[in-house]
Simulated scan of single mutants.
Amino acid sequence: MKTTAAAPVRGRSLWDDALIRLKRNRAATLSLGFLVAMALACIIGPLLTGHGYDQVYRSYVKVGPSLTPYPRAETVAPAARRALRRARVEVGEDIVIGDGIVRIPVSSEGELDQRIVRYIDRGDIFSGARLEDLAADGRSAVIVADIEQLTFLFGTDATGRDLLTRTLIAGRISMTIGLLATVVAIVIGVTYGSLSGYLGGRADLLMMRIVDVLYSLPFIFFVILLVVFFGRNFVLMFIAVGAVEWLDMARIVRGQTLTLKRQEFVQAAEALGVENIGILRRHIIPNLTGPVVIYMTLLVPKVILLESFLSFLGLGVQEPMTSWGVLISEGARDIEGNPTMLLFPALFLTSTLFALNFIGDGLRDALDPKDR
């Protein structure tokens, strides 16, 4: 009688076990989903709002958030009168509004100049103005114009720009700076720290003293020096933040490397004649992945906060581009007149930071070898 061999049992790797533990952490998984949704909203959202991030609506400065489109029906007639104030015409009392069109009766002591419709089209409320029902003597007519329907879900800022679009664009800048600066900090910190810890001796002493000297430089002083040489731009933020934050990573990696290089598998590789670069690349750095990934999730919110702080001081992203720090700075100046200018950017920033911190806590628990 033939017996079928049982299928080999496939074991779980440490990474598979960590992934299962991470999925069980509801706060971390929800935060990861929220972060993905936030990134997609910042990438795709500005294309769907119907407003440019630098488009100015002079007729809608500091308007509040609303689900219904502007202008309000009660503001159309006063806006038409204000627009024709310099046209030297008499505006009738019976302004008719309906079906997205306004009809404004006008009259003049002399013959009407047909160019008066330009006064109507100058603002953001009306468009396509034209003269109709012109009298035989040319002294009276009706100006007909389309009413532009504009929706501002988050309202507008102090210059009349859509706050929703600018908040989403600011998210692009803040998260991009956070990710890029974090990648730079990790690449430099992991390379520097692992090399220092593995070489040891005088090399380690010299490399760590260099880190101590860089630690002693005030961050703001370092940023001001970069502003003098590079100016205020996106590259400055990338260089300034990334070139400073690698110091913590280097210290963390050095401490882990000092522990790893005493392990049996590293000593075996040394006994087999593997070069130092090969040991670092194959044995030391791969075993540092857990702490590095955890620190990366905690470094991204720190970098975003640093960028917001620098932009708040006026040393970061410059107009017309924006970031969450810039928007919070503008909202803080106008908090009494329009608190929503501060509320929405601050809400986006704090929710993103909370999500990143929850993900970091989840990864720390999932990758902790003492908690398996």
Rank of each mutant, 00 (worst) to 15 (best):
A6L: 14
R10K: 15
L19R: 00
I20A: 10
A28M: 04
A28I: 02
S31Q: 02
L35E: 04
Y57A: 09
S59Q: 10
S59M: 08
S59N: 15
V61T: 14
G64H: 11
T68E: 14
P69Q: 09
A73E: 15
A79T: 14
A79Q: 14
A80I: 04
R81D: 11
R81S: 09
R85D: 15
V89A: 06
V89E: 01
I101P: 01
V102T: 05
I104N: 06
S108P: 07
I116P: 05
V117A: 07
R118T: 04
I120V: 15
A141R: 03
A141L: 06
V142D: 05
R161C: 10
D162C: 07
L163M: 11
T167K: 03
G171Y: 05
L180M: 12
G193T: 01
G193Y: 03
S194D: 01
A203R: 09
M207L: 15
V211H: 00
S216D: 01
L217M: 14
L226P: 02
G231N: 01
L236K: 09
L236S: 06
M237G: 12
F238V: 13
F238G: 09
I239S: 09
Q256F: 03
Q263N: 11
F265H: 09
L272A: 13
N287F: 02
T289C: 08
P291W: 01
V292E: 02
V300K: 03
F312T: 02
E319C: 00
W324E: 04
V326P: 10
I328Q: 09
E330G: 11
E330R: 13
E330H: 11
G337C: 02
F344V: 05
T352K: 00
F358P: 00
R364Q: 07
